[in-house]
Amino acid sequence: MAIQSEFIKITVSERILWIGREAYPLNNIARVRAVDLGANRGSVISNFIRSVFLWGAIGAVIASLASAAGHESVATLVGFGVLAFLFYRFVQLLDLLARRFSILEVQTNGGVRARIVSKNSTETGNLLSSVTGAISNPAAEFQYTIENFHVGDRVMQIGDGNIGKVGQL
């Protein structure tokens, strides 16, 4: 799964919340919430175990066929190849289990949503406090620069004008 990041500026000025180049009037914000997101550990680990058994069985069959045909070096090479691939999958598993994201979601009265995805939950917590404080305080102004992560495909849909997948990451 591809992950891209970009630094975006989040500002409240003159009762407008700016997230990058998108503007949201503070009086139209219906909900602001922070959510922590991580991998579904059970699913990730069960997929890894299935792949270990599958690739182990495939490697064992190929190695035994090569060994039976008198190609011991091919059998050894296949064995090492399968072990190297399984080690690579194990490293991927550890990376996936270590990923944690903190999401700040802003929802307006019209159903429009903006999401800021960060690896720093303190940063999104501070931003949540600042946005909710600015809703009740007309004089409030602030500015943050946050590394915003995008995981997966980009889909653009505005009303009935669905233009589908914009880009695959």
Rank of each mutant, 00 (worst) to 15 (best):
P25S: 03
N27Q: 15
N27I: 09
I29C: 09
A30I: 03
V32I: 09
R33A: 12
A34M: 08
V35S: 12
L37H: 12
G38A: 08
A39L: 05
R41A: 07
G42A: 06
S43C: 15
S43H: 15
I45T: 08
S46Q: 12
S46V: 05
S46D: 07
N47Q: 15
F48D: 00
F53T: 04
F53P: 01
G56I: 01
G56P: 00
G56L: 01
I58G: 08
G59A: 06
G59T: 03
A60N: 03
L65N: 09
A66C: 07
S67E: 02
A68G: 13
A68N: 10
H71Q: 08
H71P: 02
E72S: 14
V74R: 05
V74E: 08
A75E: 00
T76Y: 12
V78Q: 01
F80Q: 11
G81N: 02
G81T: 01
L83V: 10
A84S: 06
F85D: 03
F85V: 04
L86V: 11
L86T: 06
Y88S: 14
Y88G: 12
R89D: 11
F90M: 08
F90W: 07
L93P: 01
D95I: 12
D95Y: 12
D95G: 14
L96H: 03
L96N: 04
L96F: 08
R99M: 13
R100Q: 12
F101P: 00
I103N: 03
Q107K: 11
T108F: 03
T108Y: 03
T108E: 07
G110N: 09
G111V: 02
V112W: 05
A114N: 10
N120S: 08
E123A: 10
E123D: 09
T124D: 03
N126D: 14
L127Q: 00
L128D: 04
S129A: 14
S129T: 11
V131L: 03
T132C: 10
G133I: 10
I135R: 06
S136I: 13
N137V: 06
A139N: 15
A140F: 00
F142T: 02
Q143D: 11
Y144E: 06
T145L: 10
T145F: 13
E147A: 09
F149V: 02
F149G: 01
F149Y: 13
H150P: 07
V151P: 00
V151E: 07
G152I: 06
R154G: 15
R154C: 14
M156P: 09
Q157M: 10
I158G: 05
G159Y: 07
G159T: 05
G159P: 02
D160E: 12
G161D: 13
N162W: 04
I163M: 06
I163L: 07
G164W: 02
G164E: 04
